[in-house]
């Protein structure tokens, strides 16, 4: 591998979590209606923010998190700053608990993620209810968060392999 190609690959590795997050947002903006829309689309960017806040915060700087959230707000038409704020708060909370999660079993990390998902749901529901002036039905949000929590183990393994084998050089 030439010097230039190596540099490009390095850049790609450093930017990979950010790019994945942006791709997760694109998925949220596509007309995905699997099983006639019964299964909601999981919020993959939340998984990405959670995962790299524990295992490699330097791979997902706060600016990337902000941009991922902002793109989601712009594309899905929600109030600007909502998902950006939720993802940033997620990163802050997770990073403060980082030393607890590092080296733990994946089951424990999964439990941690479900707690984070509950926290994010509460923020989202409160802000949206405040902004629309009525108490919104949280059912759709809870279903979407449930789907997100259910797919976490799969993405945890995939991201773990990616992070270990590709992003972090041995």
């Amino acid at each position: 591998m030439g010097y230039r190609a190596e540099n490009l690959f390095r850049l790609f590795k450093a930017a990979a979590p950010t790019l994945l997050g942006l791709f997760g947002v694109i998925i949220l903006a596509l007309p995905v209606r699997f099983f006639e829309g019964v299964v909601p689309t999981p919020i993959i960017p939340l998984v990405i923010v959670f995962f790299w806040s524990i295992y490699g915060p330097s791979y997902l700087p706060a600016l990337s998190v902000f941009l991922i959230g902002l793109l989601q707000d712009l594309l899905t038409g929600g109030p600007l700053g909502l998902y950006a704020g939720v993802y940033l708060v997620t990163q802050f909370v997770v990073m403060s608990q980082r030393s607890y999660f590092l080296g733990r079993e994946q089951k424990v990390v999964w439990l941690g993620f479900s707690l984070v998902a509950v926290g994010a749901s509460v923020i989202l529901w409160l802000v949206m209810s405040l902004m629309s002036g009525v108490l919104l039905s949280p059912a759709a949000l809870l279903l979407q968060m449930l789907a997100t929590v259910m797919i976490y183990p799969v993405f945890g393994i995939v991201f773990g392999e990616l992070h270990r084998r590709v992003l972090v050089e041995v």
Binding site: A62, G85, V168
Partner: peptide, 28 residues
């Protein structure tokens, strides 16, 4: 290897708390 920080490229600097706070304020 999970949890080991190798700083390079985009992730050269450790994630700074200050920027994080600043961006949370911007979002709000």
């Amino acid at each position: 290897f999970l949890g080991q920080d190798r700083r390079e490229g985009l992730g050269r600097k450790a994630n700074s708390r200050f920027v994080l706070f600043l961006l949370i304020v911007v979002s709000v």
